[in-house]
Amino acid sequence: MLSIRQARSTDTPSLIRLRAAWVAELMGESTEDPDFDNNYRTWEANNARTMFVADLDGTPIGMLNLMVFERMPKPGKKTIVLGLSRERIRRGGSPQRRGR
């Protein structure tokens, strides 16, 4: 069964694998980088992002990186909150179904 949930700290290794696989697939480049695991963990600790995981029968197959921006208020206007989603990554399945 497919479920989408907010990522937990225990999902970090899966997020690292998904990110590396996405780069390899998208760019056609090797993802052999002995520093990537540490670089990702450092980035994760220093960036206020909300990560979501798509889980299929207990296997993470996708991720979503969401950043929430709260704009500076203006006189006479309410604060605007925006969400920016990036790195929507999905592994497996047919290319025709990606992005859905």
Score class of each variant (00 low, 15 high):
residue 20 A to T: 10
residue 27 M to P: 00
residue 80 I to D: 10
residue 62 G to M: 03
residue 9 S to D: 15
residue 41 R to L: 04
residue 42 T to P: 00
residue 71 R to E: 14
residue 37 D to C: 05
residue 40 Y to R: 04
residue 85 S to N: 08
residue 43 W to C: 01
residue 92 G to D: 02
residue 80 I to N: 11
residue 5 R to W: 08
residue 7 A to D: 03
residue 56 L to S: 09
residue 7 A to C: 05
residue 42 T to R: 09
residue 98 R to E: 05
residue 70 E to P: 00
residue 17 R to T: 13
residue 11 D to R: 05
residue 96 Q to F: 10
residue 95 P to C: 02
residue 40 Y to A: 05
residue 47 N to L: 05
residue 50 T to M: 08
residue 25 E to L: 10
residue 5 R to N: 09
residue 63 M to P: 05
residue 84 L to H: 15
residue 80 I to V: 15
residue 98 R to Y: 03
residue 13 P to A: 05
residue 27 M to C: 13
residue 64 L to R: 11
residue 56 L to M: 11
residue 36 F to N: 07
residue 4 I to E: 03
residue 21 A to T: 08
residue 12 T to S: 09
residue 97 R to D: 10
residue 96 Q to N: 11
residue 97 R to Q: 10
residue 89 I to P: 05
residue 10 T to W: 01
residue 96 Q to G: 10
residue 90 R to G: 06
residue 46 N to D: 10
residue 51 M to H: 14
residue 71 R to S: 12
residue 92 G to N: 01
residue 54 A to P: 06
residue 7 A to Q: 01
residue 6 Q to L: 07
residue 32 E to C: 06
residue 84 L to Q: 14
residue 67 M to K: 13
residue 27 M to V: 00
residue 18 L to R: 08
residue 61 I to E: 09
residue 88 R to F: 13
residue 82 L to T: 14
residue 80 I to F: 05
residue 96 Q to P: 00
residue 61 I to T: 12
residue 22 W to N: 11
residue 67 M to I: 15
residue 40 Y to P: 01
residue 37 D to A: 12
residue 48 A to R: 13
residue 7 A to R: 02
residue 43 W to T: 01
residue 26 L to E: 11
residue 46 N to V: 03
residue 20 A to N: 03
residue 13 P to S: 07
residue 35 D to P: 02
residue 23 V to R: 15
residue 87 E to H: 11
residue 60 P to Y: 00
residue 75 P to H: 08
residue 85 S to V: 15
residue 4 I to K: 06
